[in-house]
Write a protein that binds this DNA or RNA. Structure first.
Lengths: 244, 244
DNA sequence: ACTAACAAACGTAATTATGACGTTTATTAA
DNA sequence: TTAATAAACGTCATAATTACGTTTGTTAGT
């Protein structure tokens, strides 16, 4: 039997990072529809994955379900960052392809989440929605109000990655110091002095050097490190600092 | 004509600060109902102010409207911090007093905001909902899931007040250094060294000493200061710092 | 008029963190 | 062998933080 759906949806902003191209990416799905009568192209753009919330699930569960359908992954870092619900949200003609929404005369409110995952963990080809990674600096045309949702997710991520070590959710388990720096630079859109960054990061107790180096590079191979969540949590539990 | 309402509501966590008692307070309204037949007390607790979102207003406008009805105030600092919508949210018998909700078979999702305002700006007596200030360390019994909403608002405020100078939204326009320290201590639940805090705050360009001192105190009267939002915005626009 | 009490306000010294650079090292490709 | 290049290490001046001690200005009580 089908689940009863609500006029409330979740939308998922899925961040991934490609250490090769040093690019912060978003996973988007294709939306395409042309009129059967006139052959007019009604929609041809990309959107975030999202779906209506079932009556018997929490908002968090709903977001987790949507991500699982998209990527097959569970247990990824997830943050609910904002609800969107302007009254004109359903006025857009393009929305008509979502037949479920038509069942309501009410407008839809969407609760937006972002996820952080390792690009390597996702098999994009296996996906039935034609999901595709896009560099955040070169996004395609976006449907609904998803441009705005993405921008606000990015802003929230900027602030959050400076306050908590969530950056490691986007990196492979073994990474180099420069991987971390490149990722910070991708997220924040700034340049960081490598020598100072390196010193600062290596001094963190929760950055563990491994007995391993990069292989298959044509330059001096870099030292590999891992992040210890355990040590972080033991040392930095509620370490508020007044900085303003 | 009545506004059409949605099965989406806003709830407002209203923070105020009393410089005399040095207490961070919340503005709550009384909820009381007894059965006409059995005289059984159905509900007798306090709740956040909230209301359903009208079909033609944004979520932000809805929160602003609720705050205005409660306090008469507009243009207060406002932050949407989380949406709450567990499937059991309408199972609570106590909810039955909200007749509007019964019009829906759907559960309600509430978008929670917090507001920061100066206690002195609110005339509690003038309020038709019997609104009352409660110290956040001594809250009464709370209805619905409002205990949880308040806790999450408080956590968000802790982080936010360390990242941005929103603390001054809670203080009178003219304040002492110790007022600011006391407020930080109330919000964060920590103790701060007065001498170091004082030096740090006075060194901020946006903390302006006035040609005025406290009056009516029975000790050495303290210097009064004001916060210059202008100077802050000119100096601190997008000053990201990697700290982790 | 003097003094105790007390919070406001100022001061200091050691340590740590930061910003802005210069130098050396290990590797591959030519 | 060597040039090229990214990784890794080093230095120094300045700023910020931590952890305290001391002085000042006011009122209230004698």
């Amino acid at each position: 039997m089908p689940n009863k759906i609500l006029n409330i949806s979740v939308d998922c902003v899925v961040f991934g990072y490609d250490t090769n191209t040093k690019s912060l990416n978003l996973l988007l799905i294709k939306r395409y529809l042309e009129s059967e009568a006139t052959k007019e192209i009604l929609v041809d753009d990309y959107v975030l994955t999202g779906y209506h919330v079932y009556e018997d699930e929490t908002l968090d569960d709903s977001a987790t379900r949507v991500l699982k359908e998209l990527t097959g992954l569970t247990d990824q870092y997830k943050k609910q960052f904002k609800a969107f619900g302007n009254p004109d949200r359903l006025m857009n003609k393009k929305d008509l392809i979502w037949s479920e929404k038509e069942a309501f005369n009410l407008r839809t409110v969407t609760v937006a989440y972002y996820f952080l995952l390792k690009t390597e963990d996702v098999d994009v080809e296996a996906n039935k929605y034609k999901a595709k990674w896009f560099p955040i600096r070169a996004l395609p045309e976006l449907g609904f109000d998803h441009q705005q949702i993405i921008e606000e997710a990015h802003e929230d991520l900027k602030i959050k990655c400076l306050a908590e070590p969530i950056i490691f959710e986007l990196l492979p388990n073994k990474f180099t110091i420069n991987d971390v720096q490149d990722l910070y630079e991708s997220i924040l859109g700034i340049e960081i002095d490598n020598r100072n960054f390196r010193r600062k990061l290596i001094n963190k107790k929760y950055i563990i050097p491994l007995d391993e180096k990069q292989v298959g590079v044509s330059k001096k191979p870099a030292q590999l490190y891992m992040f210890s969540k355990d040590i972080y949590q033991k040392m930095y539990h509620k370490n508020y600092l007044i900085s303003i």
